[in-house]
Design a protein around this nucleic acid. Structure first.
Lengths: 105, 105
DNA sequence: AAAATATGCAACCATATGGTTGCGAATTTC
DNA sequence: GAAATTCGCAACCATATGGTTGCATATTTT
């Protein structure tokens, strides 16, 4: 994944409302737009815009089902985010190791 | 960590310039403000504001050293971000398992 | 067919964000 | 002590963002 794509992913997760949505989707059953928009303290249309942000960042996918639209979490996005952080941590560890060896010399 | 803190962490990582800074810090040696601000396509003061965002999200710490200020990555922040995503993935997996069992019945 | 439900579209608004420039101050270096 | 380096502060600007309201549309349900 490109730097820009990773940044967009983290940006999408970097909002309390969107983060709660993602948490709900990972927790429970499949939700439609209306259900996912409840109890967030904002209007349905406000929530809809946040969901669109998640769609654009590929954190979530939409599946129209008759009158309603199901929202599905894309676990691959989460995996990519976690992998990116892990790679940063690996480089950091490597650097610490090199520094330690230098000190011991 | 609170939801808000996690959101702030991801928000801090959710920008190309800041993400590149974090990558530089995990990669190489310790950098001062000026060095970290180079080759980003923006001014020193522009970069300084982005660094402040990283400080506020506790991704990075500042250590004044005479005339210059060293910027240090806080690996704990990365770990917390990774842990949060991992917990989401765990819940997701658990849900998939439950669904699978239901289908097999 | 009428009513209820779930959603979409668009305009609008206040504030946050990412960036700039100009200038001053502290610390090294020569 | 003068010059160069590194940084801080503040004002300013354009655009993005997070939210609202009003209204239209498609699908179920009764």
């Amino acid at each position: 994944m490109s730097q820009a794509a990773v940044a967009q992913l983290f940006k999408a997760l970097g909002d309390p409302v969107r983060l709660q949505m993602v948490q709900r989707l990972s927790n429970g059953a499949a939700l439609c737009l209306g259900e996912l928009s409840k109890d967030l303290g904002i209007s349905r249309q406000g929530a809809r815009k946040q969901i669109q942000t998640l769609v654009s960042a590929r954190v979530v996918q939409l599946h129209p089902r008759g009158r309603e639209v199901k929202v599905q979490l894309d676990a691959a996005a989460l995996a990519q985010g976690r992998a990116f952080i892990a790679s940063l941590e690996a480089q950091w560890e490597q650097r610490l190791q090199a520094l330690k060896q230098f000190t011991e010399q």
